[in-house]
Simulated assay, not measured.
Amino acid sequence: MNRKATALDVAKLAGVSRSAVSLVLNGRGDGNVALESQQRIREAAAALNYTPNAIALSLRNQRSRVIGIVSDEVVTSPFDGNIIAGADAVARSQGFVTVVMDTESDEARDEGAVATLLDRQVDGLMYVTVGLRPLHVPLNMLQVPSILANCFDDRPGAGVPAVIPDEVRGGREAAEHVMSLGHRDIAFLAGDSLTPAAPRRIEGYREAFGAADMPVNGDRVLQVGWDIDAGFHGAIKLLDGVEPAARPTAILCANDRLAIGVVLACYRLGLSVPHDVSVMGYDDEFRIAKNMVPALSTMALPLREMGAAAMTALLADVGSAPNGKHDGGGPAAAAGSGTGAGTDAVHHAVTMVPCRLVVRDSTGPVPAGR
């Protein structure tokens, strides 16, 4: 029977010592093993289909090479699984595996989920949420390097860093898009203020008006909710019985479901999208925004990008923590691409990832005469 190749087999084929094989394949060859020998070792390992024993490596390094991920409902809901997918791709590329536990939005289970993962000797922890929100971080997360994705630590002066979408910039770029098409009378339908996303997207909308030296009409900003029916009734309020010259020519929405409701209201009122009213969504929700009729212009949330950025920063911190021990802080500045987080005062270690403008069929030039 063919047996699995060993490090000694690789050493013999490459003509080097077994310790040289270990140094090279464990990423410590530079400065310890000649470059020519490193190349021979890699070629020999590939020829023999040799990979280091993960359990033995973990025992030697006192690391499990496992990252625990706690989710509020990312696993059990149809939304935002791409955050975990982006994180997992980075972890696998660096020889780590991920283990995910979902609390189904029961905060009482947070500490227990973290404890379960710590019992499995994870090297680091990530907490992921479906929507942007403050998180009461379980204190036992501080035992190992930790990071937050799509949420931020709600404790004053807290040290767990976060990777979140740049919602203010997203709201601003959505408004700038329809302004570039000639629109000036632009309404904004937002969700409630229970989540930080809505006020930040409104803030971006206001910033765009300020940059264009245009006043914001407060009557054009309505916080109606997050679902299709809220978008429908909000659009009816803005459009029904209003003379063409007095109705908004574009309606921005804080998510794609609101935008669907707006489009349905326009159809109910005999208005064409985008000929009479341009409609803009937010999120680029899978199987919804692209498949709408008309296909929705929207701001795409950077879900995979957030997961990848968070995992990259976390693994950097794991690599710098001696023997997996931790001082109670988190990854340094979480890749350092941002220090602010919109309308709320959030700990300085926050990375904000830009959303992406996706232009489709629901936005068009301002109607003639407007």
Rank of each mutant, 00 (worst) to 15 (best):
D88G: 01
E111T: 13
L48D: 07
T129D: 04
L118S: 13
P138Q: 03
R65A: 12
P145H: 07
D119T: 11
E73N: 15
H136Q: 13
R65W: 09
E73M: 07
Y127F: 15
T129N: 04
Q62R: 11
F96A: 06
Y50R: 12
A45H: 08
G81P: 05
L125R: 09
V144M: 05
R133E: 14
V144Y: 03
Y50M: 09
V70W: 01
V100Q: 03
G86T: 03
V100M: 10
L132F: 14
D123A: 09
T98N: 10
N61F: 02
D80H: 09
V99H: 06
F96R: 04
I55S: 10
L48T: 07
G95I: 03
T76K: 10
Y50L: 08
E107T: 12
D80F: 06
S146T: 11
R65C: 04
D110K: 06
L48V: 09
T98F: 00
A113P: 00
L148F: 03
V74I: 13
N150V: 07
A113S: 14
P134F: 02
V137M: 05
T116M: 14
A91Y: 11
M126L: 14
H136N: 13
H136F: 00
R65Q: 14
Y127R: 01
A45Y: 08
L135F: 10
P138F: 01
D110W: 11
V114E: 05
E43C: 07
Y50V: 07
S77G: 13
V74A: 11
V122H: 05
E43K: 14
N82S: 14
Q62F: 06
E111K: 11
D106H: 09
V122K: 03
T103E: 01
E111G: 07
D123L: 10
Y50N: 08
L59Q: 10
P145I: 04
L57R: 15
A45T: 08
Y127I: 05
M126K: 04
V114Y: 03
A115H: 12
N140S: 15
A47K: 13
N53G: 05
V66D: 00
A44L: 07
G68L: 03
V66W: 00
R65Y: 15
G112Y: 02
A115K: 12
L59W: 11
L118K: 11
R63Q: 12
N140L: 02
V90W: 01
T103F: 00
V97A: 12
I84Y: 13
L48W: 05
R92Y: 01
G81N: 13
N61R: 14
V66M: 13
A87T: 04
L135W: 01
L132M: 13
D106Q: 14
D88Y: 01
L117I: 09
T129F: 05
Y50C: 06
E43F: 07
S105W: 03
L125A: 13
I84T: 15
R42G: 08
I83P: 00
V90I: 15
S71V: 07
S77A: 13
V90T: 13
N150E: 08
F152M: 01
A46M: 08
A85W: 00
Y127E: 00
E104D: 12
D80R: 11
Q143Y: 02
N53M: 06
L59T: 10
V75C: 02
R60V: 14
P145D: 08
D102N: 14
V70P: 02
A47S: 15
P134K: 02
F79S: 10
F152T: 00
L142F: 04
G86Y: 07
D88N: 15
E107L: 02
S71I: 05
L59K: 11
R65S: 14
V130H: 02
A108H: 09
V70C: 07
